[in-house]
Design a protein around this nucleic acid. Structure first.
Lengths: 245, 245
DNA sequence: ATAATAGTGTCTATAAGACAATATACC
DNA sequence: GGTATATTGTCTTATAGACACTATTAT
């Protein structure tokens, strides 16, 4: 077929370096809940541009190592936190000629949810320039690199919006947890309190959790049933939003 | 400051062409409602790769002409439809090494909503290889270029999800319209019927429309009040989704 | 027994769904 | 007056919110 030959010839003569194209990167807003607060992971840049400023973990797509954007995000996440299986979702896209002094730059921002247990596993692999920041105290870091302050705000807005309608926060908890713990996580992320009865009605109706057989959280009080996410139930949406008091 | 000198020196020696980076493009899923059906605009490619296949309007970011991603999308939209002021929103991000035969490719897909009146204004500027396709009949185009069939499905899902909760469909109508017309558009996009009374209650409560003074749609029946979008009301979210019968 | 948290139940408030009733034009 | 569509109202249904009540363990 002549058409196919033409197409093959076109591809042979095509050289990407003949064109001016934007830099393309992936940035990750990694959320966790620790000490009753929502936190985000930042790294202090060791290289130019914005050397020594705090920034989101991320970087350029490695077209020789990464099969797709998700692979880039997972690679960066693994490098910084050791976590291999987070909840990971791309939530926006930004590109302009002002955000990076090296030139026209575009980024695919992801947000990731991980739980503190996954973190503890990793704390040994010393990464000096990596720290968790409480979201409300981000102004104490000095200006962030690039437009990362805006990306964090966008991620937060996306997270809160989604939490109102879905079972997303289970990914901020270890594999098994009590309903009270899950409710507490919702409250921390949303920044407001939720009625216990209404919350449990919704969770029960959403049908995305299963009781851990013989799993109980013990303490100086009535023991609580442990639950875990049902398999093949990545995300459940509620009919009406979770409104606080 | 030595740090600033270092940063400046770094930027001087930085050459984007030293690195292998992905191709980066913008694709636009342009929706409109005509003849009681939701339609999407496709162009037949004149160049390799995928010559003669139908594809989404879009293309590479021109880092010399476009200030940001939105500018690229608006430029492409203007070229294909003549429409300058659509509702435009970036809704996803895709990047991998298989979607484009020229190499590792990433795209920022947008969806745009335009109304048929805007279209008529443009029909003169002949673009032979541009056509509207009814969404349910997309399988009659033959395979689309790249992964554009998937992008359209993703855009449609995003659109439907958002329409359930928001005033978005006003952007598929001309500046002024009746409530019945607005309801009809909602029904076409969602593919199901909505109760008239409930719909009006919601719209009234959302408070994003205003009556056009002395504006009436006349016919062989009771005349209907014309409404238009209030200024500074780009998008209103409802508390509960719009469920059909 | 007391403290503390788990878990359930009951009533209310809000908003959507069903469906009917009324309004107002053109013919 | 007849027809067609606009607009409003009433009752029902579904779900969140408020709040109280019971349950179960450790100390």
């Amino acid at each position: 077929m002549q058409a196919e030959q033409q197409e093959a010839e076109f591809l042979r003569s095509y050289n990407i370096h003949d064109y001016d194209i934007p830099l393309t990167s992936v940035d990750i807003v990694i959320f966790t809940v620790q000490n009753f607060s929502l936190q985000v992971l930042l790294v202090q840049r060791a290289e130019h541009p914005f050397r020594l400023r705090w920034a989101l973990p991320g970087g350029f797509i490695d077209i020789h190592r990464d099969d797709d954007l998700q692979a880039t995000a997972l690679r960066k996440l693994k490098e910084k936190t050791g976590v291999a299986t987070p909840y990971l979702e791309q939530f926006a896209g930004v590109g302009n000629h002002t955000r990076d002094p090296r030139g026209w730059s575009a980024t695919f921002p992801f947000f990731a949810l991980i739980n503190p247990e996954q973190l503890d596993l990793q704390s040994g692999s010393a990464v000096e320039d990596t720290r968790w920041f409480v979201l409300d105290e981000l102004d104490q870091t000095g200006p962030l690199a690039f437009d990362h302050a805006q990306l964090i705000q966008a991620a937060l807005q996306h997270l809160r919006h989604k939490v109102e309608y879905s079972s997303l926060p289970v990914h901020l908890l270890p594999e098994s947890f009590t309903l009270s713990e899950l409710q507490h996580i919702h409250e921390i992320v949303l920044g407001k309190n939720i009625d216990k009865s209404a919350f449990r009605k919704r969770v029960k109706e959403g049908d995305f959790l299963e009781a851990v057989p013989d799993g109980w959280r013990l303490g100086s009080n009535r023991p609580a049933q442990l639950y875990r996410l049902k398999q093949l139930q990545p995300l459940v949406y509620f009919q009406r939003p979770m409104i606080g008091r």
